[in-house]
Structure formats: C-alpha cells, structure tokens
Design a protein around this nucleic acid. Structure first.
Lengths: 213, 213, 213, 213
DNA sequence: CGATAAACGAGACGGTACGTCTAGTCTTGAA
DNA sequence: TTCAAGACTAGACGTACCGTCTCGTTTATCG
C-alpha cells in the first residue's frame, strides 16, 4: 500500500454504488496545504478545507478520521521531496541535505503542521503510527543513503553488522533532524550556512572518533 | 528575574483598586498542569481550567491572553527544575542531564504541551518570544554550566573568546535538546541508557575533534 | 397567511440540503412560552429555551435573529385566540372582548412579553414591523367585526366611506387596547366588570355622539 | 417624602461618617438619561452610567437597588413637567395635555424607558409600587385638574360624591394615557392633531352621555 | 485635635449569558 | 453507494455585565 492514500473500505471490495471520486482526494489535500499556509494549524477547519476543495464535508469525513490524519497525509508528500544531493564528500552531502531540510521548514505549511501533529500524537497511538509510517521512517532512507555513499567513497568503514549500523543510523537521524528542527522552531534562530557547518563538523568528528575506537 | 509571571498592568503602577489575588495565579497554573495531564493540549479548555482552579474565566483572561501563553507559563517551571548533576566527568554529566530531560519528557503535561506551543509559535511572534524567554534561553544555562565544569576539570580547553564559545554552546544546546526531543516525540522511541551513551559518545568525539583542530 | 412563522431562506428556494425540522419550530415556541411563564422576559435566556426545546442553540439562531423576534412569534398566537363573542348588542360585545383581552393580560407570558417587546421596538424598526404584522394589525379584525355586527344590527349607521371608517376603527382599537393595557399593567389595577362597564359606557356614548353629529 | 429621591439609611440618622455627595445623585440621573438617549434601555449598563457620571459603581449601588429603580427615578421627573394648559374649554384642555404627552413620548429616553420598566414591573411588586408612586399616581393630578376646571366652567356637572368622581378620573386617566401610549408605541403611528381631535371628540361625547344619564 | 466612621475611586472577583464557531453526524434529492 | 448541500446536537470560544468585594483615600462628626 502506498502511504498517504486514504484507506478504501477495508473489509471487502465495493462493487456496487457510485465509485469515489479520485479527483476529490487530490483536491482535498491541495486545499489542506493551501489552508495551512493561509491559516496555520490551529485555525484550519475541515469545513473550510471542504469548501476550498469544492467538496462536501461528508466526503472528507468518509476518507479521513479527522484533522490530524488529514494533515499528516497532506504534508507527508513534502518530506518525500527531500533528497541527498551527491556533492562528492560526506561533509558536503550532510550540508546539502540539511540545507534542503531547512528550506522545507521554511515553508509555512510544514512549519505549522509538523510540530502540531507530533503534539497531538503524544496522546494518540494511531496517529503516532501514522506519522511514523508516512513521515519519519520514510526519511531514514536519507541517512541510509548518505552512509552507504560515504562507505563507498571510503570515508566511513564498512558496517560490521546491519543491526548496529541501523542503530547508528537512527541516532544520526534523530541528531540531525532534531537539531535542525530545534534550531528552526524551538530556538527560532536561522539555520544558516555557518550553523550548518558547525553541526556538520560536530557530526563528522563524532563519527570518526566512534569508528576509530 | 520574574519570568513566567503574568504581566502586571504595564503602563503604570496599579496603586488603586483591589489588588490581584496572588493565590489565584498559583491555583490557575496548578490547574493547568493537572488538566494537561488528564486531557492533553487539544482538549484542554480555559473554562475547565478556571473551574478546576476555583476561579472565574474572566480572572484567567485578565492575566493571560489565551491558552498558548497560559500553558507556556504553566510548563516553564518544569523546565526550571532541570539540573546538571556533577558526576565527575563531562560524559557522565551529559548523560545525567539527558536522563533528567528524558524523564521530563515522560511527564504527560510536558510532552503534550511543548510541541503544541512550539507549533503555535510558528505563526505568533509574541508567543515565540515568550517561549524563548520562559523556556529556551533559561535552559541554556545547563550547557554553559556543563562546559565550564568540563573546562575546570581540563576536559575541554578554555574558550578563546566568549562569542565563539556562545556559538558552540548554542549548537550543543540545539543538538542535545533537539535529538532527545526528536527521539522521544517524533521517532517515538525510548530515550534509554544505550541510546544516551551513543549520543554522548558522538558529542564527545565531535567536541574533541573540534578542539584539536 | 403564514405570519408568525420564521422566515425561510428568502433569496431562493432551498431545494437542496437537509430540510429544517418543522417539529423544532413548535418545540421552540412552546419552550419560549413556558420559559416566559417561569422566568419572565428579563431572565429568559435563549440557551435555556434551546435546552427546554431539546434543540441546540444554533438551531434557534438559524431561525430567529434574537430574543425579541422569538418572543414576538411565541406570543403572537395567544393574541390570535381572541374572539368577539356575539352577545346580541354592541355594549355586550365590547364587554365580552375586553373581558377576553383582560384574561389574556392575566397570563404571565403575555404580561411580561408584550410591554417588553414594545419597549425594544422603540429602537428597532424591523422589530416594530414584526410586532405590527404579527400582533397589532391582526387584532384590528376584532374592531372591524364588532363594528360590522353593530351596523348590521342597526346600532351604528352604515359607514359613509371606508377610509374614514378605518380611521375610526383605528382610534377605537387604540382606545380600547390602550385603556385595558394601561389599566392592567401601568396602573396595575384590576380590569374588573365594573371598570369594563365604565369603559363601555364611555365608548358607546362617544360613538353615538359622533354619529349624531 | 419627595418621590424620586434615593432612600437615605432608613433605620436611623447617620450622624457620623462622610455624608453622601448630593452632586452625585444629580450626575447619576443625568447620566442615566443621557445613556438612555444614546443606547436605549436594553443596552444601558450601570457601569457605563457610573463612568459617565464620574462615579464608582459602588456609589451607584449604594443608592439604587438596580437598573429598574434607577431608570424609574431618572425618567419620573420628565413626567412631572406635564401641565394642563388652560385653553378655555375642556376640549382644548384635553387636546393640549395630549399634545404635551405625545411630545414627551417622542423623547427617546421616555419612549424606551416607560414600557421597559412597566414590563419589568409585571414580575416585581416593589417596582410596581415605585412606578405607581413616582409616575402614575402623580400624573392623575392632570385629570383631576382638568375635571375641576371643566366643572368650574360649567362644562361638566359637579361631582355627586368624591368616590365616584375618583373612579371616573381613573377611567379617563387610563383611557387617555393608554390610548396615546398605544397609538405611539404599540401601533407605532403618529399622534397628530387629527387623531387627537378624534380622541377628544370621543371622550367628550362619552362624558356628556354619561352625565346626562 | 485626634479618633472614628462612613462614603468615595478604582478595579479585581465569581458568575452568567451572550452570539459565534467548529466538530462530527444526519437527512434530503440527484447522479 | 457516493455526492453536494445544509440542518442538526454538542460544546468551547472570548466578551460583556452583573452585583459584590477589597483596597487605599477622603471628608465629615464626635470625643
């Protein structure tokens, strides 16, 4: 199943009756992003999204359980656009992906939505799953790719075993993503080139120290 | 310093009229934390907080502009309880403070509130200021203290100048706080001893590499 | 004629969407009268009316602009119950209708509501219209009927022309209704048989004197 | 005791302490009338009256129990300005006083206040008393004076006994006042010369018919 | 003259209702 | 069976007044 798609009736196939409009899904997600930009998370209402999308509220509720899940689906695709540019060195690759991530966090729909759904997810197990599936786990590919590329270049030693490599990947993922998000949204200070260089230096130092040991 | 306190009438001193009840402030903030634990951010209502506190809604609105500001003040004190335990080495000190921070993020009122107000702050400059003053900047003392202690122990070289030291402190702050928050709330995985050891190792390696250069 | 009914969407026909519940209208008006009896005008709240009627506040506000208009509609039907009993003579007819009117003004919902909405109408042109349409003009039929009956009996000469007859009708209407209301509510003294006999005598004398001239 | 004055401490004289400001009474009543003109009964608030009068709310509540009583006192003096002009005949006298009364009912503070306090009085015995004492009974002097003058002129026979004369006076009072109020405020049509002539004709006819019998 | 006592302004207080908004569901007729 | 439309119940929102209270201050009379 492709993430981000609202679930079809799960029990059995709906052979009879009018089929759901495929266009409606796209219109709703577009409208959601547009409303996030204009209004932000807390002032976004599903009634407004529905009318922007030219769709009845019932249509919307038939496909998503509520605001949280809709917004997760609406912003997940933004994160899928992230890439690790091949800039020739691990340091440059890290700087490149961080720049992209910082640019993403400049977009108002991402800024306002990300923290909000995470906040909601602290009391909603299903939402936490959805966020993990649609956003978090999908972006770990960036760390994996960066590491493999560095190993191919000889900048990092080959992984002794997959399990411990995955642990390190997870750590690096949380450190990079966490540091950037914290800088951008909590400390509310610019993620500029200088800061990124500092972060990259810290990481590379830490990684090489770890591999030397 | 009196941060975290609701603002008295700012223009001029209120010598006249009935003075505001000091007990009400405490009751409201206690009620806010209790409601956060029970209901979480999104189901917390100011009417409920008021009635828990045994206070009229107007009293609450007279002192705080809204839910965001109230919650910032209510949880800010939780962050003030963080300390850097002196465990004899920089590594142990980092592990100690991260453990404390992780414990704080286990508390439901902190979990649900922190991300939520940050999300709101992306569209509210005044709220951003308030968070910075009441929470973020106040906790940077932890990094400062940890660094000074390490320098006193000789684990880190003395700072060449204050400005660049502050930059490094800020970086370390965002990396540690960001990584822990991201691990706990976004990745939604446990901040356990093993993970903390990995993070600490990465940091120490990065720091020593940086100071050797 | 459907006066007293809340206005349907005025611009164009509502063919689409769920139709408004007809039962709700009746429940709301009943609840309004009941609340007027128990609480009186000034303590009647729309929230209370809604909950008595088993209806949400929004349903109420969707149909009436506010308390004034709702109460006018709620009490207008009481006035429609007034009749001119055929007692065989003009004097007896007048006494009969005044007795009925006095009995109406004994009812607490009418007492408390009538003056209140009139008071409000002194600053609200639309409300003035509504009162005129729903209450005042509808009751002028009583005077018209009484006059026609008296003319048929030969107690009053036939009207020379309709216009002047209407003027006299209006005068008689204001005199009778005004005198009874003033006695009952302003002077706050009983509208008993003796007083009614005096009023009737005054009117008959005045009418016969006018027609003799 | 002169009506319209707020009650001093009733039990016994207050010899000691700061005496009440006499100027405050006047300022409050003036402010009340001004607020009635601007805002009308239902939007008049005691807080606004107090601030218009340059007085604290407590000062106001120390003197009047509430809005109803304050407004009765504030408008009662307007009614005391009514006079029966001596125009030489009973018909002309009636027309004169009705004209004055109609002019009074054109004043917004009187229009909005009179019906409102009467409406409130239907559920408040004490208020009913206050209205009777401050307004209603005081204006019956007008009917008494008109009757005596007409008797002196020989237009009406002398009263056989005082009791029945008082009954007739009361009836005439309710008829005139009621008709004018109903015409002006309920029917919401102009109390113009033509209508007044009709009313006067009706009354004179009725009175002469009664005295002939 | 100093003590006492009430009235005063200011404004905070607990309440209550307001009229609006949004959530999520339900009921129509049309596709 | 879905769809657009829109009415429905439920309940929070933030505001406005209510009538009371608690201050510090003022203005009188009385001892």
């Amino acid at each position: 199943m492709v993430s981000g798609m609202p679930s079809r009736n799960p029990s059995q196939s709906a052979r009879t009756g009018r089929p759901r409009s495929a266009a409606a899904d796209a219109a709703i997600l577009d409208a959601t992003r547009a409303a996030l930009v204009e209004l932000g998370w807390s002032k976004l209402t599903l009634g407004d999204v529905a009318s922007r999308a030219g769709v009845a509220k019932t249509t919307l509720y038939r496909r998503w359980p509520g605001k949280n899940e809709l917004v997760v689906d609406a912003v997940a695709v933004l994160f899928d656009e992230l890439e690790v540019p091949d800039r020739g060195s691990l340091a440059a690759d890290i700087e490149g992906v961080v720049l992209e991530f910082a640019a993403l966090l400049e977009r108002p729909e991402a800024r306002t939505a990300l923290m909000a759904v995470v906040a909601e997810s602290t009391r909603d197990e299903a939402l936490r799953e959805r966020i993990r599936d649609s956003i978090v786990d999908r972006q770990k590919r960036l760390v994996l790719l960066g590491r493999r590329r560095a190993q191919a270049r000889g900048e990092l030693p080959p992984a002794p075993d997959e399990a411990s490599a995955a642990h390190v990947d997870d750590l690096i993922f949380d450190v990079i993503a966490g540091a950037v998000v914290h800088r951008a949204l909590v400390s509310a200070e610019p993620v500029d080139k200088e800061w990124i260089r500092g972060l990259t230096g810290l990481l590379l130092g830490g990684l090489s120290a770890a591999t030397e040991a």
